[in-house]
Amino acid sequence: MAPPSVSRQVAEIAAEPDRAAAYACLLHLQRACADDPSAAADLAAASPSALLPLLLRDAAEDDEAVAASALKCLGFALYHPVLVSTISGQLAQSVLATLAICNLAVWCISVQQLEASVVEDGVTPLLNAIVYALDNPFGSLSTTFEAVQVFFLL
């Protein structure tokens, strides 16, 4: 039996009520599509409308497992050239606003992949995220490194 199509898998992930389990499935799907241009294109076609709004919403979730998983999947989408190319300016602004919520967001999401105009328009949330990340309570070097990289983009 053939595996379900990427668009069907995305629909199932979006409808899954257990968000942590949904993001585990999405991360598995993203990794499977990473080296397959056709599958990556299918995932890119389905992601902006079906998944990105969920990822952004769940990144602010109080449940750390859900928020961390959502940010990890969002970070993957921003690193993959086929996936990041489908993110509209409006959604990119929402991504930047999401960055200001926690250290983990700065660590998971590298804004170097976004268009310069989007980054320029989102200076205030980025500055908030940088300050928050540099003041991280765990002294995470990777978080500090990502925050400094964002600073140099400004």
Rank of each mutant, 00 (worst) to 15 (best):
A2F: 09
P4F: 02
P4S: 07
S5K: 03
S7C: 04
Q9D: 00
E12Y: 03
A14C: 03
D18R: 15
D18W: 06
A20Y: 08
Y23P: 03
A24L: 04
A24S: 11
A32K: 13
A32R: 14
C33D: 06
A34N: 04
D35H: 01
D42I: 00
S47N: 13
L55K: 12
R57W: 00
A59C: 13
E61M: 07
E61F: 07
E61K: 12
D62T: 09
A65C: 10
A68D: 14
L74G: 01
L74N: 03
G75V: 12
A77D: 12
L78K: 09
L78M: 15
S85K: 14
T86Y: 04
S88E: 02
L96H: 09
L96F: 05
C108P: 01
S110P: 06
S110Q: 08
E115M: 08
E115L: 10
A116T: 11
A116D: 08
V118S: 08
T124D: 13
L126M: 13
N128A: 07
A129W: 00
A129Q: 07
A133N: 07
D135W: 12
S140T: 08
S140M: 05
S142T: 09
S142F: 06
T143L: 03
T144P: 01
F145G: 03
F145V: 02
Q149S: 06
V150Q: 02
V150T: 11
V150K: 02
F152L: 10
